[in-house]
Each structure stands twice: as C-alpha cells, then as structure tokens.
Amino acid sequence: MPVRSAELEHLKETILKMAMTVEAAIKDSVRSLVERDSDLARRVVEEDRKINTLDVQVDEECIRLLALKQPMGKDLRFITTAMKITTDLERIADNAVNIAERALELNEEPLLKPYIDIPRMSRIAQGMVRDTIDAFINEDKQLSKDVIMRDDEIDELNETVLKELMFIMTQDPTTVSRAVKISYISKYLERIADHATNIAETVIYMVDGKIIRHMLPEQI
C-alpha cells in the first residue's frame, strides 16, 4: 500500500517545525550567555520539552507508516531518514540546554572576557542545522555536502577557543571555573555541528541510497 504524499508532507512539516525550534534553541542559548540573560536561558531549558514531544511524535508517525504501509524504495529511505534526523535534532537541543545551563552558572559570575568566537560558532552551527534541514526537505545532495564541509570550520574554532582559554587559565588560576565552563560551551557547539553533519550524511543516503557515513570527504 503506498504511503500517501499527504502523510509524507505531514512528516516533513513536523520535522521542519522541530528543526526551527531547535535552531532557535541554539540561538537563544548562546544569546543568553552573551547578553547575560538568565531568563532567556531558563526559557531554553523549558522549551526543550516541546522538542522532546515533537521527537516522539515523529517517531510514532514513522513507526505507524512502517507498520501499516510497509514502504519501499524512496519512501522507506525517507521514513528511516526522518527517524534518524529527529534523533540528531533532539541531541542538538540537549546540547543547547547544556549551553543554557552553563550560561545560568556563568551569568552569576563576573564576565571572563567578551565572547567573540562562541557567537561565531553558534552562527555557523545554526546555519548548518538550517541548511541540512533544507537539504532534507528539498532532497538537495549538494547542500548536504556543503554542510559536511563546514564542520571543519567549527572544529578549528573550537581548537582556537580551547587554546585561548588554556592560556587564560595558566595566567590566572581564579579563572579556571569559568574558563572550563566556557570550554564546555565550545565543545557543545562543536557537538551540535557533528549532529548537523550526521543529518547531512543521512540526507545523502535518502537521495542516493548510498551510505556515506565513516567515509573521507574526498570519497563522498
């Protein structure tokens, strides 16, 4: 029995809604840090429930379609991809929550230094999430590849941030507690980019039927 296109559209819409909420969570979590806005940080933690609910909704819908429609070919690839994507989106949101929690702690202490690279990483990560979901919706393989390539930028920024923080810590041990928390945040953003990369790889499978995970970039 074919999966109706309305059912696939509905699934796409739910994922899109989830992705938009997740993207906002990344943005707000970093904003709550940069602008020292603890109310905003608490809202990010609260909003995570919505994302969890959407995650369960997508999973239930996918399982229903698998059981009742027994999809094949492209539909099968679409539905299994949807399930994987929501898992990654949910993890991204968890990382945003972690950022917000660290922001809540950091906002209680004096500012260590102005945040420059962290907002930059956040913008790249948000862009990766947005583009990877666009690639999913539009079955755009090239955009997925672009996202995968962008992961290196975040990795490099993360390295830079860590080095800088280590330098600060060696200079003044009273900064350690704050510097470690900021380094976590940098790591969370780096993880977010990894999850976006996972999604991009899954999208390429959906379009091509080719599994490219664990391949070198030049093999893709």
Binding site: M1, P2, P71, G73, K74
Partner: peptide
Amino acid sequence: TEDYITGR
C-alpha cells in the same frame, strides 16, 4: 521501478 514499488 522506484515509482512502482512506492505505489506511485
């Protein structure tokens, strides 16, 4: 083939 197996 894709169209056939997906019922389109």
